[in-house]
Simulated scan of single mutants.
Amino acid sequence: MPVINGFDVTALRETVAAVTEERRLGHVTFAVQGEWQGGLAVRSTTGALVQGGVRDPRRAGKFVLESDEPAALLGGDTAVSPGEYVLQALAGCYTVTLVANAAAQGIELRKYRLALEADFDLSGFLGIDKAVSPGVQELRVTVDVDAPEASREQLEELVKLVEQRSPIRDTLVRGVTVTTKLA
């Protein structure tokens, strides 16, 4: 199979076959380490990637992520906010999922754009209203796909696949156990 949308379809098929054969290869752990920078800012670096129980240290410290809050939310406005990182995580995962599935189906993309918005109600975070969750109240995603050879129905099916298979979307809608402990 060729490379479609800059994505190696053969490698995808080989990965599916390998994980089907040896399921532990599909078990992946990402890590970051964060350090407070004063105010509401944190600087994090990527940790080692673990796949199938094998630690790959090549990503450790390779990438830096910084966050802060906007001035309107009492931050220093020196970096992307954690809420924007949630949107970026979903945008990134939607992109991986859409591009890989489009390529696997032979759908060539000319252009692909996303618009994401997340609504928060600060009365939960600030402890003003215990009935209000401090997290995202609603998250909206608009997907704009330009694929001249694909029908509207094919693109709608592709977006459904993205909703079904995106790990980050699944994490957001399903909820996940988060364990926090003091070192």
Results as ranks from 00 to 15, higher is better:
135 G>N: 11
180 T>V: 15
49 L>N: 07
43 R>Y: 02
134 P>Q: 02
116 L>T: 07
20 T>G: 08
129 D>T: 03
88 Q>G: 11
139 L>Y: 06
21 E>Q: 11
14 E>H: 08
86 V>K: 04
140 R>K: 13
32 V>T: 14
25 L>E: 02
141 V>Y: 05
105 Q>G: 11
99 V>L: 03
63 F>H: 00
102 A>C: 08
148 P>A: 06
17 A>Q: 06
3 V>F: 09
56 D>L: 08
37 Q>W: 04
86 V>L: 15
155 L>V: 10
96 V>Y: 13
54 V>F: 05
77 D>L: 11
6 G>P: 07
181 K>N: 13
117 E>G: 12
59 R>H: 03
88 Q>S: 13
118 A>C: 11
100 A>Q: 11
57 P>V: 10
138 E>D: 14
87 L>N: 09
31 A>Y: 00
80 V>N: 04
132 V>T: 12
2 P>L: 08
82 P>Y: 08
178 V>T: 13
39 G>A: 10
28 V>Y: 03
42 V>F: 09
58 R>L: 06
48 A>P: 03
50 V>N: 01
75 G>R: 06
95 T>Y: 07
112 Y>C: 01
11 A>G: 05
13 R>H: 05
181 K>Y: 12
22 E>D: 13
74 L>E: 08
86 V>F: 10
22 E>A: 09
17 A>T: 05
162 V>G: 04
156 E>W: 11
127 G>T: 13
95 T>Q: 04
132 V>P: 02
72 A>Q: 07
72 A>V: 09
31 A>F: 00
175 G>R: 13
182 L>S: 12
179 T>H: 14
14 E>V: 03
71 A>I: 07
132 V>L: 09
7 F>H: 12
162 V>A: 15
68 D>E: 04
126 L>Y: 12
145 V>D: 00
159 V>C: 05
28 V>S: 04
78 T>K: 14
160 K>I: 01
